[in-house]
Write a protein that binds this DNA or RNA. Structure first.
Lengths: 127, 127
DNA sequence: GCGAGCGCTTGCATTTTGAAAGCGTCGCCC
DNA sequence: GGGCGACGCTTTCAAAATGCAAGCGCTCGC
């Protein structure tokens, strides 16, 4: 597990990964606009580290020269179950969870379905 | 998910929780002896924070006066699926995983069974 | 009582973080 | 074709977190 913690055992890496999981592909400014409050230097550092660790890939934006898009690699996508369990735990134990109470039951039985339903409700609010 | 990261979104909290999950109950020196390299002041701080967050409880050791034992609360025990997924991911993607190759397949199909089997093999090695 | 753990706390140097400003490149508009 | 934003970072510097080592009160065995 130390291996996992070396990769994303800090405050921001998992939020970056979550943004990517929710959006499939993202630009630098989209990460910043996600509203978690990450600062520009830390974001640049995390993107560099996560790319070096093989969690995400950086490629030039085909539409805008000079811009880049980030997306999860298969290795990064394989972190989704971890994210799901963390979101499930948050939904269950956070008294101020933004997730409606009736959805929490669904979370227990079928997390993936609940996530889908929840994202349909509000796709841009912090968990 | 920010709620979860507030609780254990750092390098050490999850290692403390994992130690507790593997041992059911632990003393201060047992955490230190787990060999992850946590320093004494940080350990004391994490135990305090995790207790305040309701993840673990501290109780006097019935056998040794003046000593304490720590154990997971139900809320803390509910983090086990998160740990399992992280261990699964590490086992799958860490090229130097201490988990035998044949066990990795089991991990994919039945993580809990694999964990039990693996713990039977070696219960005190870092993952 | 006294020496050896145990369970922390304290002090201090080093590292990481956060806030803000700066800077080069690209595309647009005139 | 030159000025002007927006974008994608980098730099600077103060503040917070971490790591290391030492210290300190308590209890237990002798």
């Amino acid at each position: 597990m130390v291996f996992a913690l070396d990769v994303f055992g800090d405050r921001w890496s998992l939020l970056v990964i979550r943004d990517l999981a929710m959006r499939e592909s993202s630009t630098y400014s989209q990460f910043l606009a996600a509203g978690e409050g990450i600062s520009t230097n830390v974001l640049a550092d995390r993107l560099k580290r996560l790319e070096a660790k093989g969690i995400l890939s950086k490629e030039p934006d085909p539409e805008h020269a000079g811009r880049s898009r980030y997306r999860l690699t298969p290795k990064g996508r394989d972190l989704l179950p971890v994210l799901l369990e963390m979101i499930r735990w948050s939904a269950k134990h956070d008294p101020e969870s933004p997730i409606p109470a009736d959805l929490r039951a669904t979370f227990e039985s079928d997390p993936r379905a609940a996530i889908a339903e929840w994202l349909a409700l509000l796709s841009s609010r912090p968990t």
